[in-house]
Write a protein that binds this DNA or RNA. Structure first.
Lengths: 250, 250
DNA sequence: AATAAATCTTGTACGCGATACAATATGAAC
DNA sequence: GTTCATATTGTATCGCGTACAAGATTTATT
């Protein structure tokens, strides 16, 4: 099978969640299509068919990489969506066949979830005017079954963070204050957390290392900076997560 | 698209884990194929192509149902496998093309995980001589990438049980003793558990209801039976699992 | 220089669950 | 009634989750 031909049966859709310091945003692409005699504009997830000779993970990286510059992106497959009717809406079929120049039937898609921090150094690719960050609360009706995919991805985030606490640090700068870290948790769990208890919780994490650096030029007591120490984390957790199974091969 | 035609690009593979009262077994199918001039016999997971008009979940139920009689099977999609080379081994390609009577290229497969109790009332379908239970520790080299799929499924089991304690009761009879329940956890976590502490833990589960029934004709003190009360469980957990996200749509 | 404004940092008390640990009770068989 | 095998049960400790308020620090204001 030739390389770089599309495999028109399986796609990858990526729910890229970006934390901007106060809330979560999802990366969406503007889409223009024709339905009947009308044109329409709406939004979709970044996603597309895999290549015939491409891994699923590679496809997900490629597709996210088409829009944002990131190094070491946290990207995880979380669920597949295979309803026979998910690619049946006329406007979706029409748009897709025009986009890929192929006759489209059923497509099973593999959902990927990415977590990252929206920072001043994060840039969309130049001239990429179609990619936008939309706050999760403001997401309207999306193309295909992308609303369902976003919903399932969001459901997954908390479980991932609880299972593997190191994932939160994808949402924070290298140096961060206790407040910044707390705000991430508050956004994740949708409720305010007690400040004192959160400090205690942080101090119990050996892999969150306090620095001798403090905020500067703030109109209040300067907050201490912390950093995440990956080596300590993997020493503590051994590279495995608690609750792992010993059923198979010890 | 006609119904009941195979969709030769996506398959479902099912890791059916059965607990026999002391250990976990995986349901495997015997396979005979030809490689060169030799015939070979090995084992594979129950799995197969989906139909063109079939949901993934439905396909998984169908495929498991081809071999065992179960009502209300716990069956959960856990991961997709899409390496371009996963269906490239000559013996696998040859066997598969003969089995489905189709030219086979790449196939992306969706992994499903099932949990059930191997009991005296559980039966393979009549004349189904190819299906066997194999203790997890004794699983040898399987067809395709099925070893990898089993491994990932087993990794998933503990997390599922920890996240949703009600899943263990799929591995127990309706009436069970504290010992039986403890043995399940011991097999899951691969280590013995303290008997007294386990009793306390059970007594803290309002949804594990002690019965006024006891073992009979055992050569030692008779153990009390318990049952799992689904209604109480969902009252306690509200049908949702702890740690769910409030990020999206409240 | 004193005060205000903003937010950062910190300690105590309570309860629950996890853990470590050993003696007693009970049903069947002899 | 003794033995055997397994079931059942209580105490002490520790760490974590939670509820709750006062003092510290930096800049801006007067």
């Amino acid at each position: 099978m030739p390389e770089n031909t599309l495999y028109p049966h399986v796609s990858v859709d990526c729910v890229v969640l970006g934390f901007d310091g106060s809330q979560f945003n999802v990366l969406l692409l503007k889409r223009t299509g024709i339905e009947g005699s009308q044109t329409f504009n709406d939004l979709k997830l970044p996603g597309g068919l895999i290549f015939s000779d491409e891994n699923l993970d590679d496809a997900a990286h490629r597709i996210v990489g088409e829009h944002i510059n990131t190094n070491a992106l946290f990207l995880k497959q979380f669920k597949s969506f295979g309803s026979p009717s998910r690619t049946s809406h006329p406007r979706d079929v029409h748009w897709l066949e025009k986009a890929v120049q192929l006759k489209i039937g059923r497509i099973v898609t593999i959902g990927y979830l990415a977590l990252l921090r929206i920072s001043s150094t994060l840039r969309f690719h130049s001239k990429d005017v179609q990619a936008i960050w939309v706050p999760l609360q403001q997401v309207g009706t999306l193309a295909f079954d992308h609303n369902q995919i976003v919903e399932e991805a969001v459901r997954e985030v908390c479980e991932i963070v609880v299972r593997d606490p190191s994932t939160v640090f994808n949402l924070l700068p290298k140096r961060f204050t206790a407040s910044q870290m707390r705000v991430v948790y508050e956004a994740l769990f949708g409720q305010p957390l007690d400040v004192r208890n959160f400090h205690k919780k942080m101090s119990r994490m050996p892999y969150v290392v306090p620095l001798d650096e403090f905020e500067k030029q703030v109109a209040h007591r300067a907050a201490r900076y912390y950093r995440f120490d990956k080596k300590i984390y993997f020493k503590v957790y051994g590279g495995f997560y608690p609750g792992r199974s010993s059923l198979y091969g010890q």
